[in-house]
Design a protein around this nucleic acid. Structure first.
Lengths: 209, 209
DNA sequence: GATTATATGTGATATATTTCACAACAGGAA
DNA sequence: TTCCTGTTGTGAAATATATCACATATAATC
């Protein structure tokens, strides 16, 4: 029996957080916890937590709460799908390098397998722990390494071009740091992280006080 | 009298995007446009655009559409509040430096005035175009420079401590790159950018195909 | 074993956000 | 001027998301 309704994006985001918090708790020797405890850590309500767990069909015990190990395993079962997730990063500028070095030193399950750029000074070297190739090798490396996710850290003007090549190469998910919306065909999921935009939003809402 | 209901966060996010797109259009000599044209660029619907503009009380003409200059000015009036927005960044690691260099070369209205770290090798130098101070000078520099927004790019373990100091120093908005939810008193706005989390979400939704 | 106190799981409800559908309108054409 | 076309502005409906409220369950205690 599978899930009939797809799990909402908001729920998935919280699930990722729960998983991280739970792994941390487990490492501290916590074996069991209540919805209101997880809620306090995740900074939301116990009802929200229970609703979310209901979404993935996880059950706890009214008096003992939830088993941490079992819950981690259930959440992971949802988040870590069937396929291996192998990532390519395009654009080895400041931000690209920062992300590379963030992910090279241990990040279980998420591996940036290759980086790409057009700058000859960066190509064919190991930068921030990741092998960097020229864009001319993009398609062949994607296929060879079974890469299915992409990170775009190129300037805005080139982002769509890179996205198009990613899509053509069969990549199914793109994380876009360039401050432009990308046009992709259905079946490809795009998420955007826009630092300048976040700061503007911040400025707006901070203004209130 | 202006807005009775606060403008929703989602609308503000789109507004930031509209503004950027419009400024770009203006520089290309476009003087007027229809809601469906802006929608195409922003990757949403004409109704959504009109609703958003209604939110800020902007009016267009049924047959001529919206005046680009006037619209930019109206959106800016909403987004750029009354106070100057001056930003401090704490944590001059890879990500911190990437953000600093991203913002030093031209970003109108958003200035990172100072960076802070505890590493003696970074302190009292100009890094990626921004002056870096020791954390011991944090409170005095915040006051002196009238800083009201903060960016946290320290490891998770130190994020709450930094946030507490920011709040105590009077900062009203925090952009948090550390993968932990921050606890702050009401009146302080926090936004989180969690790259690992975004990748996990990406992996989940890309899995579908 | 019965009682009790405290959590869970969830239908119902409330709120937030988006989309629909269409009346009102403005400019160009005849 | 009057008609026609294509767009705006927005009430109403639909959808998505979060919260409430409570019946149900279970471990600990007596």
């Amino acid at each position: 029996m599978k899930k009939t309704t797809p799990i909402p994006a908001r729920t998935i985001e919280r699930m990722v957080l729960y998983k991280r918090l739970l792994i941390d708790l487990k490492s501290k020797g916590v074996h069991t916890l209540f919805s209101h405890q997880l809620a306090a850590l995740a900074h939301n309500t116990s009802t929200q937590v229970r609703r979310d767990l209901m979404e993935i069909g996880h059950s706890g015990s009214p008096r003992k709460g939830y088993d941490v190990t079992e819950l981690i395993s259930n959440i992971s079962g949802i988040l870590d799908g069937s396929k291996e997730r192998i990532i390519a990063l395009v654009g080895v500028g400041n931000l690209g390098r920062a992300i590379l070095s963030y992910f090279t030193y241990s990040h279980p399950g998420l591996t940036i397998a290759a980086a790409f750029d057009t700058d000859e000074n960066k190509v064919d070297r190991v930068i921030s722990g990741c092998r960097c190739f020229h864009m001319s090798q993009f398609e062949s490396k994607i296929a060879e390494m079974h890469i299915n996710l992409g990170i775009i850290t190129v300037p805005a003007a080139q982002a769509q071009f890179v996205a198009d090549r990613m899509v053509a190469a069969g990549i199914k998910g793109i994380l876009n740091f360039a401050p432009v919306p990308l046009k992709v065909p259905g079946g490809v999921f795009v998420d955007r992280i826009d630092i300048a935009s976040s700061l503007e939003k911040l400025a707006y809402f901070a203004e209130l006080s």
